[in-house]
Each structure stands twice: as C-alpha cells, then as structure tokens.
Amino acid sequence: MTTYDARFRIWRGDAEGGELRDFTVEVNDGEVVLDIVHRLQATQAQDLAVRWNCKAGKCGSCSAEVNGRPRLLCMTRMSTFGSGETITVTPLRAFPVIRDLVTDVSFNYAKAREVPAFVPPEGVAPGAYRMRQVDVERSQEFRKCIECFLCQDTCHVVRDHEENKPAFAGPRFLMRVAELDMHPLDAAAEAGLDRGRAAQEEHGLGLCNITKCCTEVCPEGIKITDNALIPLKERAVDRKYDPLVWLGNKIGRRSGTP
C-alpha cells in the first residue's frame, strides 16, 4: 500500500460568505475524494459539512465540484490526480450555499412538483399491465437517474443565469417529462395533457440549446440530450407545425389533444 500527503483546497463558509482553506492530508491506495473529506472531518475539521449517503455512486448525495468540474465525491478517485497536484473542492455553483460543501437544492424539488405524474391507463387492472421490454427500455434509461443534480448544476441556462430558474425545469426534469412521454402506458393524452407541449410551454424546453453539458457530467452515463431532450424537442415541433393538428384545433375537433 502506498501512502502520500495530498494538498487540498476546500471551500468553507456559509450564505454570508467564505473562502478556500488549505489542508494537507494523507491519501492511501484506491481512495476517492470523499474518503479524504471524511479523513479531514475525523482529524482536522470535525464540523466540515458535506452531504453523503451510500458512498457507492447509487444515491447521488455527495455532489460537489472538484477542480471546477461537477462530480460525485464518492466516484472521483484520487488516482486520477497527480500526487503533487492541489485538489480544489467547492460546492455546486448553481445552488445557494448552506454551509461548506452543502448547498440548498430545493430548486430541484420545486421543479419535480411541476411535472404532472404518471397517468395510469383506464380500465387496466393492477397486474394486467403488459409492455414489451424494447418499449420500456427508452424510459428505463432515464429512470437510472440518481438525482445527483449535477446536470442541473452544469447547465449553462441556469448556472450563470439565476433569472432563468423560474422558467426552466433543467435537464433532469425535462428528462422526466420525456420519460413519461415515452412510457408505453402513460394515459396523459387521454386525460387531455400533452406532455410534449407542456415541456415547451411550461418547463422551458426551448431554452435548451443542446450543448450536451448535462450528458457529459451524468455519472450514470444517461444520454440526456440525445435520447431525452432532442426527441422531446422534435415532438414538440412536430405537434406545433402539424397542419392537421392546426386544422383540428381550428375546427374544435381535437380539443383534448391540441
């Protein structure tokens, strides 16, 4: 086992302000950045605030920025850095700081509530749902999401534009709309809800200009832009410019699905 001392700069502070503090700390083989933060808590900074849970990349709690890049601390291995390199850990930039590495992510929970839930098909009893594997796979990809909110943090629509937040659900929740839209048995349309149009008109899909930053930071490797956002945009556009839909709307025949 090899051991060395690494230099860390960790942001400490709260809503009032704060600064980067320097630490020198022991690193062992195979460790991840979260191990180092834990060692600092146990030996140098008892009250250093960090969120974490599973330490296995499954819960999406320990999101922060390592050398300016949004990452899960538990999945960032120390071996990816040179032993002489100073590693800087800062809280997620798109959200207000609570303390140290912990930010207020309530924006995401507010957006989650704005997406209408799955609408079960009428007349299909529990246990009678039949779906083909190939048809559920598209939505399953999006349900791999661990809600680490790294995509929400990195998306430039809100990262440096606080003013866009009210109008923009962010990649995570636009992907949720796409997931429901692609669910083989979702009966939103029958209930008079057009998810594609809602994405455009209520969740700010139009603000996304497909730079794929969200896909790049996704620790689950979900192709958010290619598989969720672009198809959703295409559908919204199809609907909007479909002459039959336009005519249907005009003559009031398709009020349920405009």
């Binding site: 839930a117 799955f118 079960p120 529990p126 246990g127 749902y129 039949r130 779906m131 083909r132 594997q133 559920v136 939505s139 399953q140 349900r143 429901l180 669910h183 979702d186």
Partner: peptide
Amino acid sequence: VWELETWGALFDRTPDGR
C-alpha cells in the same frame, strides 16, 4: 408490486410483456 406499476414503475419484462 402490481400497485407500483400503476404508479409508474417500469420493471424488466418477460417475452409476453409481464
């Protein structure tokens, strides 16, 4: 388990869709 499906869960399927 079946109730979860009515709430939107997407389990892996058998060839006949169950």
